[in-house]
Design a protein around this nucleic acid. Sequence first.
RNA 1: GGCGGUAUCGUCUAGGGGACUAGGACACGGCCCUCUCAAGGCUGGAACACGGGUUCGAAUCCCGUUACCGCUACCA
Length: 484
Amino acid sequence: MATPRLRFAPSPTGYLHVGGARTALFNWLYARKHGGVMLLRIEDTDKARSTDESTRAIFEGLNWLGLQWDEDVVHQGANLDRHRADAERMLANDTAYRCFCTQEELAERRAAAEANKDSFKYDRRCDRLSAADIAARLADNMPFTVRFRVSEGHTSWNDLVHDTISFPNKDIEDFIILRTDGTPIYNMAVVSDDIAMGITLVMRGDDHISNTPKQILLYRALGAELPQFAHLPMIHGLDGKKLSKRHGATAVGDYQHLGILPGAMLNFLALLGWAPGDDIELMTRDEMIALFDTKGLQKKAAIFDTKKLEWMNGQHLNLLPIDELMSRVTPALVASGHVSAEWLAGHSEWYLKLLELLKVRARTVDDIVQQAGPYLTESVVYDPDAVARQWKDRAFTETALAGVHEALSALPGWNATAMEEALRAVAERLGLGDKAGKIFQPLRVALTGSSASPGIFDVLELLGRERSLARLSSALHFIANTTT
RNA sequence: GGCGGUAUCGUCUAGGGGACUAGGACACGGCCCUCUCAAGGCUGGAACACGGGUUCGAAUCCCGUUACCGCUACCA
């Protein structure tokens, strides 16, 4: 079998959408799995809506996801001459004809048909024009479009996800392939490009199912070999409608900025419309390639539920090799303004420990950044809820924290075992028995400002002797000077 | 309206005639672990759209109905 050639062909009219990203992913997985190539084609023939900014966003999104395309990017707009030449070849081999009907006439007839509750279909009147008539109109410089002449019969293909799909040709009108200005219509441009690029498998959203019979007809008229087709289901929002802006974050860039890992995004997207079987859910990129099979492709549209994405991101956060995680977290940490990359590099052992402790209770990179705050700043900000709950009994809190301060200052070293022994002794002394948690919680607030954190001794170690004791003093001071 | 596509827990899905008392995951509830929060383990509730066939036997095959989605442009 020849090398499979696939393409991802977005139009640059917005950001890279999660649906587009998933289409790109499946194309990429198939290509990587079967030793093929995935090309990128920017469909920028709609000048009014296409922007360079969108093109850049598509590149960025794909790069972030690690979906590298092969060969040079194809810009559809650069191939206009070939599109036109292909259409003219069809005119020459009599599979297409000139249509002199104006847009206004067409609109009128369409409106009339609709008023009669009839479905409108071009009546082929220009296909019945005599040669002399055509010559005369051409001599008059009358503008014309080029229409494809749809033959009798039916058009069907064996779709990789839907099996056989068939359309009666009588339901397909003689569609326009070239506008009055000589530019190609979508289906014309796509087929011309797919042939030129040697595409062997067209894998795209199932909103293109109805375009497929038209495209197949064009391949035949051009004498080209048909590619295989695979139509992927759509992605919908929670309300079951096609995913769009009003559903919230739909651009892959949005998720990047929310602290989602590209590996998690890919994994989540892959599971929307594909299942490897055996109840496998968590996969790395390489595992997805190894497991990918069009047999597992789903026919049904999937609903984009970010809850599972977040869970999955938490899983990937823990699966990711720590140095890779570090390279994702460091820029975010620096952006938070609490530290410099240099400082972190100079304290790599400490930084590593911090990450190990935080990653297990974070779901996103942003969670890590937020939780890292207390360890990177000089002073701590008390969470009002935590203060209200954990420092409720002020007298007790004061004696407890003072006792902790005393016990910890007396310690010769600063290690977890010794500290735990000392603090449990304090609890014992205060008559708390084995309920040392009663002093750990107030202590946690004093050290981190929050009632949730890694294990208290890990926090103490991370903060170090000096900062820990200073925070205890500050807490004592805060309590003494606050009236409730 | 016409044409096409789709239909399993709230969501993502396994399932391709008997292994189904329909499995897993997210979310939700409970329990365990525990200094908090997570993570983890155990556990509970929760689905074959409906109606006809075919068959000894149907979530699985066929037909119809319904619902949803897409296309129906000199947009892509």
